[in-house]
Amino acid sequence: MTSIVGKGSEKRDLASGTVTSPMGRVGKATINGLAFLALVYLFLPIFVIVMFSFNNPRGKFNAVWQEFTFDNWLHPFSDTALTDALVLSLEIALIASVIATVLGTFLAIALVRYRFRGGAGVNFFLVLPLTTPEIVLGASLLMLFLEPHLVLLNQDFTLGFTTILLAHIMFCVSYVALTVKARIRGFDWTLEDAAMDLGARPARTFMKVTLPLIAPGIMAAFLLSFALSIDDFIITYFVSGPDITTFPVRIFGQSRTATPPQINVLATLILISSVSVMVLVTWFGQRRKRRLGNV
């Protein structure tokens, strides 16, 4: 009898909540509050950028809130130099990421799948661009591109599109290779054996088995290198020419003379697209996980 009563009272205790003492409740509220403040701290600058895209500034600098307007959003591309820079940034990011993703993926597969002479050296050179200060990388790339011997070799290295692209591919390859390497470390290579055992040639094995299975890792690496390329300032600053430059370098260059609200509009557009991509990737990833089950 007594035991039954005991069980009942226990159940009531549990139902009233997990935190029972008043001190506990205070602690929980404090932690929640601090977490909220930390998030505010992280997102406040982004919020300010978005907010100022709706500002109607007096003068050339969009720094003080004046009045709300949709004008900037109706004419987001009115600053042609800025728009050109953004288009160039997107072009460079796209081409550099595609090339870097292809090269970096093959590099990662080679490093994970096979043991070969010089593998450790390749690994070292992969990490080097990540650990070298960007300013050193940028300066040495500039010296390389201006090296007269290269000019003698009939290479057209006038600073501009090609030099920016080459520089971006260079550091993106490292990021791609390291990302893909980490993602395919647990890959079951006997799947490739199985495909070839069933009569699939190496190319078919790669296209039908390996690639579909490591695609999420490659996609992640591609997005990362796209983001890094769009975002890069220091290296690009060195290797872009006087006439042609990317979005971040352009903003920096013109910030001394003017900061039109279009900067905020375009930045907000970039923000929206990257958030949507993230949401899509997460959604696809979860759907895929459900489909592949626990194999």
Binding site: L191, M196, D197, L198
Partner: peptide
């Protein structure tokens, strides 16, 4: 002769089924 040209097939220890 490479595996894809041999007329034998294998059942692997962990089956190696294509999960996708």
């Amino acid at each position: 002769v490479p595996p894809y040209k041999r007329h034998v097939n294998t059942v692997f220890q962990q089956y190696a089924l294509f999960p996708h």
